[in-house]
Amino acid sequence: MGGAGGAAAEAARDAADRGSGAVYLVESPALDEYQADRYLAAVEVVCRRAGPDVILFGAGDVGRELAPRLAHRLGGALVTDCVGIRADGGEIVFTRPVYGGKAMAEVAAGRGPFVATVRPRVFDPAPSGGAAAEVVPVEVALDGVAARTRVVERQAEDKAGPSLEEARVIVSGGRGVGGPEGFGMLEELAGLLGAALGASRAAVDAGWAPAAWQVGQTGKIVAPDLYIAIGISGASQHLAGISAAKHVVAVNKDPEAPIYKRAELGVAADYRQVVPALTRKLRERLAR
């Protein structure tokens, strides 16, 4: 679903091409901009019509907000931030991290519909190709839905690079970076690699990086192919945020730092010397 601009229709065609049984499309000028009350009304209408047993959302900002409210309206069950789904003797079992990632829980639903959010990038996208499903347009009268909140001010940073949640590569700095200037060095490397910039809570609390950059259980949950941790010790709440990263590389002076229990490659040296040299070498090799 989405505004009248055609982006939603394009997303619908893409979904139809990836093995869906049916695709419902809601297009309305009322959905031009994300507003929870209206999006919720639209998704509720579609779900009541399609009658699914399981409703999945990506666990991004929108899914995290809509899924609980939809589950309440549908009288269903709810499980959030799943990293695994399997069928087990007729019931669907979801795996999700708890206690800041220190433990995993397996949860099954006692009643339907089962609404769940799925951690972004944990699952590979369904392949495209094959028989395309029908795209069914659904009319939803959204004019009567009161938008009970409204955005009165918006400040978008003119920021290059991908968002943390969608990034395939992340360069992230922690307390060991030592100050805001150090993040300039990280930015150079991130720019070269097309990476998003991240930070540990220690760096955010110190005021060296904005809260929006924070990676960890209390910040962004990320799942990049490559996570480069610079001066990050590896507190458990930070590791919880990168548990789905495919490869972790760490640069930290302290060879005993817990980050090395999670990283597969490490350099126990001063990042101020290693990172500029690493950036230079990679630039040469990538011919950028």
Binding site: V79, E106, R111, G266
Partner: peptide, 18 residues
Amino acid sequence: RVALRRLFIPERETACEM
């Protein structure tokens, strides 16, 4: 409305190549 089937501590120690 949901049942906790199992709770466990994951094993995830990686051998780090320094």
